[in-house]
Design a protein around this nucleic acid. Structure first.
Length: 560
RNA sequence: CGGGGCGUAGCGCAGCUUGGUAGCGCACUCGCUUGGGGUGCGAGUGGUCGCCUGUUCAAAUCAGGUCGCCCCGACCA
């Protein structure tokens, strides 16, 4: 492909609306343009990247026996009503009416439609298993689109759905997907890991997320270098470092106007880890007291898994329910439901004394208060792995895919059933599996860039190689460029040739910005010696070789 | 949805406080020049200052409203 025939609108300045590296570079290098908040146009280069990613996904999905289909993006409300999600999902779903006044929605995912199809067509255990997938546009009215193509309202997703006779069979398909996903991300050149993820409120279900480390990410995961334990911090278990043993007697301490852990900690000259933090929460079924260690943070989502949805109590509520003002409350003698973090089981602590301007030293679990024990703190860098005791590493990540054991959550309401060997009717056991190709692209950029631009992994670069004839008015330069271009193209490589009448500097700058992994540079000076230059985008290392050897040297370098 | 910021030429920005006929850099067009890291010189094109209403002799500038975009948070089958 010749640069002069392609639409590649590069930008010199950093667009004011872009913040994340991938967003800035995709705009600057002419890969995408924004139509509106969360809506992006993929320009030729961007679309080439998407197609290369999708090709890899297709190959690996096909390899595990998955079959590609295409589903409507416009759905009748009825099916979503049957699974209850028409009401369960709020403003995130785009809804509309057709001309007949029927409620419709735009598909944000396809469990309902896939299950509907299964319910119509699957009769017998002989029809199973099946894996159906599509690579198709989803629409979600995101509350806050952000970071360029990382979080958009309309996005392409590879979503597959497995249909099995049993949980055991589902496990097989689940594992096939996990393996396929590993191969996909490896082939796309990403650093990533699979972590345990929050199965949500449905209970029983298992799910994993695939995460690409990047500061631009929206999630955090905890990873143990020792045993490989890895989980989204939304559910990651961890053990905070232990306090040195102390042998305090129970005693009240006067702490005038010292309310926060930090204030009391400074006042008593004790580290925050010796404190017990009591937080009052209000649930539908009444107040709940949550206890975490002073140096720990309460994790709302972990707690929600124990007590359901809740909100922090207001100051007046604290006074009304516990009889003492916030800042001096403690768990001793409380009648209300109390959830304590595991890290408080052992040790002796300081807590509020349930008396204004006093704290109580020498508090012990079991003796001074009773509680239900759960891990309800936020896992932090440096905490210890609960499985092997090694230290945990917490890292910010981009979610690039997830796999989910659905069980019969959709097959039951939609009556997707089959007859087993004994003629018994049973619900199909399902799994669903998603990958966001645009997020793969964004993550690849986030993980591979420098001050000059992007640096694509070979496998998903829009082109394999870029040829830079520096002076197109020099006939010898163009002759060499055309020869190499034709040779590479004939051998099946995707080649971009910058045949624009631009100065060398402009071509270099644009080439670095576009991020194609190899540049073949053809300049007059080298050409006088019969040489051209092959340069790696990532390292800027260049070798000079004879014109005739350019193609074979390029090919040899690729395979390294 | 809560908090913050921003809308002036294709892009990046100044001008707004203190109202008085809209400016800079880049890009773009033409000519010459240059030709290995965004050449140099010259001449040009391009803007209802997001939109509406109000105040005023006069509004990019002041006031009210509205729309859009970005960031933080909440939310996220």
């Amino acid at each position: 492909m010749r640069f002069s025939n392609m639409f590649i609108p590069t930008l010199r300045d950093v667009p004011a609306d872009a913040e994340s590296v991938s967003h800035i570079l995709m705009l600057r290098a002419g890969y995408v343009r924004q139509l509106a908040s969360g809506l992006y146009i993929y320009l030729p280069l961007g679309w080439r990247v998407m197609n290369r990613i999708n090709k890899i996904i297709r190959e690996e999905m096909d390899a595990i026996g998955a079959q590609e289909v295409s589903m409507p993006v416009l759905h009748p409300a009825e099916i979503w009503q049957q699974t209850g999600r028409w009401d369960a999902i709020g403003d995130e779903m785009f809804r509309l009416k057709d001309r007949g006044g029927r409620d419709m929605c735009l598909g944000m995912t396809h469990e309902e439609i896939m299950t509907w199809l299964a319910s119509k067509e699957i009769r017998s255990y002989r029809d199973l298993p099946q894996i159906w997938y599509q690579i198709q546009t989803k629409l979600r009215d995101e509350a806050r689109p952000k970071s360029g193509i990382l979080r958009t309202r309309e996005f392409i997703m590879k979503d597959s759905y497995s249909f099995d006779v049993s949980e055991e069979a589902l496990e097989t398909n689940y594992q096939l997907h996990a393996d396929a996903y590993h191969r996909i991300y490896e082939r796309c050149g990403l650093r990533f890991f699979m972590v345990e993820s929050d199965p949500g409120m449905m209970g029983g279900a298992v799910s994993h997320e695939f995460m690409a480390p990047s500061p631009a990410g929206e999630d955090e995961v905890a990873i143990c270098k020792g045993c490989g334990y890895s989980a989204n911090v939304e559910l990651a278990l961890s053990a905070p470092s232990k306090n040195n043993p102390v042998d305090w007697q129970t005693e009240e301490v006067h702490t005038p106007e010292k309310r926060t852990v930090q204030e009391v900690s400074n006042f008593l000259k004790l580290p925050p880890s010796y404190f017990l933090k009591s937080i009052l929460l209000i649930t539908d079924s009444g107040p709940v007291l949550a206890l975490v260690r002073g140096d720990q943070e309460l994790h709302e989502k972990k707690l929600a898994r124990v007590i359901g949805s809740h909100r922090p109590a207001q100051k007046v509520e604290v006074k009304g329910i516990l009889g003492v003002e916030a800042g001096f409350i403690g768990p001793m003698g409380q009648k209300i439901r109390t959830i304590a973090d595991e890290s408080l089981r052992d040790g002796v602590y300081v807590s509020g004394a349930n008396k204004p301007h006093y704290h109580m030293k020498g508090i012990r679990a079991g003796r001074d208060f009773q509680a239900e024990w759960h891990d309800i703190h936020v896992a932090k860098e440096g905490d210890f792995c609960v499985k092997c005791g090694q230290s945990l590493h917490v890292e910010r990540v981009i979610e690039i895919g997830n796999i989910f054991k659905l069980g019969t959550k959709y097959s039951m309401p939609l009556k997707a059933v089959f007859l087993d060997e004994s003629g018994q009717e049973r619900p199909i056991v399902m799994g669903s599996y998603g990958i966001g190709p645009a997020r793969i692209a964004a993550a690849a950029i986030e993980q591979n860039n420098d001050k000059d631009g992007m640096i694509w992994p070979d496998s998903i670069s829009p082109f394999d190689v870029e040829i830079l004839p520096l002076n197109i008015k020099d006939p010898k330069t163009m002759q060499a460029a055309d020869t190499i271009y034709k040779d590479l193209t004939d051998k099946g490589f995707e080649v971009l040739m910058d045949d624009r009448d631009e100065r060398a500097g402009v071509k270099f700058k644009d080439a670095d910005l576009l991020g194609i992994p190899i540049q073949i540079i053809i300049g007059e000076k080298n050409l006088k010696e019969g040489l051209i230059e092959i340069k790696k985008r990532r390292t800027k290392e260049a070798v000079r070789v004879k014109v005739e050897e350019a193609v074979e040297t390029y090919i040899a370098g690729r395979n390294k």
